[in-house]
């Protein structure tokens, strides 16, 4: 025992004399893991996107080319990108509109027991199973499901039918319409919007709001000129999540929605049955570039302080 503790002390002495060695020893395992497995894989993906597939044999040609990226701009593929980006923007705006009042109430008015309740009320849906959440909407949006039943019971079935007859956002039923896809996206990513907004609102000191009131601002003016600008980084931080998550998802539009594809589905389909890994990789690079752009803009707005 004493020889062991003596040895530990000697190791400890060495580490104290060489503090950089200690940092190196601490950082090496995670850096190697993430560097090799994650960055290595990302690099593998990137490399694949510069290969191409032989149209006749279907075999991957390991020669660097931009041909695969060119395919992204074919109308059918480019539509997929535009559709996904529009959906991501719509989901982000919807989440901000629904999420802000919840975050605002939780941060400003909820106290004690209510505060904890609100917090868990946002945390539980955030962490509960993604697939179960998607599944619950399959139940809700089904033709024989609760939403149609409600419209029928309220004798508003004609309204739903009229809505579904609108092109693009409508469809045969909600569960196969773009509106259905939007609702599920909104539902699943909403907590990711609320938490950063709430965090940024809670960092606004009460004295600052009191100062605004003291200087003659009415509650609405305080909200508009003090609270909203200070909450904006939180909204942007939240939008990073909703935007990124919508861009990369392939399961929700597969389960609820029309047959029109999103980027995630294209990636999944090309790497799977089609065996066109280069094109799948090139498609996957699109969200990376979009997110890099988005993050760059968000960083300039100071959104990272609210993460």
């Amino acid at each position: 025992m004493s020889t062991l503790s003596g040895m530990l002390t000697r190791i400890s002495d060495t580490l104290w004399r060489k503090p950089n060695l200690l940092i190196l020893l601490l950082i090496l395992p995670p850096a190697l893991w993430l560097g090799i497995i994650y960055l290595g894989s990302l690099f593998a993906l990137l490399a694949q996107s510069f290969f191409s597939i032989d149209e006749f044999s279907g075999v991957i040609k390991y020669e660097l080319t931009l041909k695969t990226y060119g395919e992204l701009f074919r109308p059918s593929n480019f539509d997929i990108i535009v559709r996904t980006v529009v959906m991501a923007i719509a989901v982000t705006i919807g989440a901000a509109i629904i999420g802000f009042p919840v975050a605002y109430f939780a941060a400003r008015y909820a106290r004690g027991k209510w505060k904890a309740l609100f917090y868990l009320g946002v945390m539980m849906p955030l962490w509960s199973s993604y697939l179960v959440k998607v599944y619950s909407w399959k139940l809700i949006l089904a033709k024989e499901g609760i939403l149609n039943w409600m419209f029928e019971t309220l004798r508003l079935g004609w309204l739903l039918d009229a809505y579904l007859s609108i092109p693009i956002i409508g469809g045969n039923s909600l569960s196969v319409s773009a509106t259905g896809t939007f609702l599920v996206f909104l539902y699943v990513w909403l907590p990711f919007m609320i938490l950063p907004i709430q965090a940024s609102l809670e960092r606004v000191p009460h004295t600052m709001l009191e100062a605004s009131g003291d200087l003659g601002a009415r509650p609405y003016q305080t909200f508009r000129h003090v609270l909203l600008p200070l909450a904006l980084p939180g909204v942007i931080a939240g939008s990073i999540f909703t935007f990124s998550l919508t861009l990369g998802d392939y399961i929700i539009p597969q389960i609820v929605g029309s047959s029109r594809r999103f980027i995630g589905q294209a990636v999944y389909a090309y790497q799977g049955t089609a065996g066109n890994i280069p094109l799948a990789a090139a498609f996957a690079v699109v969200p990376i570039i979009l997110m890099a752009l988005y993050l760059w803009i968000a960083k300039r707005q100071g959104a990272f302080d609210a993460l």
Binding site: Y38, G40, S41, A44, G248, V267, I277, A280, I288, M291
Partner: peptide, 27 residues
Amino acid sequence: AISLLVILPIALPGIITGISLRSAFNL
């Protein structure tokens, strides 16, 4: 850089992590 590296796998869409690993296993 280390902080970024840790956060990246969750910040980028899951499908990117997925297909990256898949291509790496493949290669």
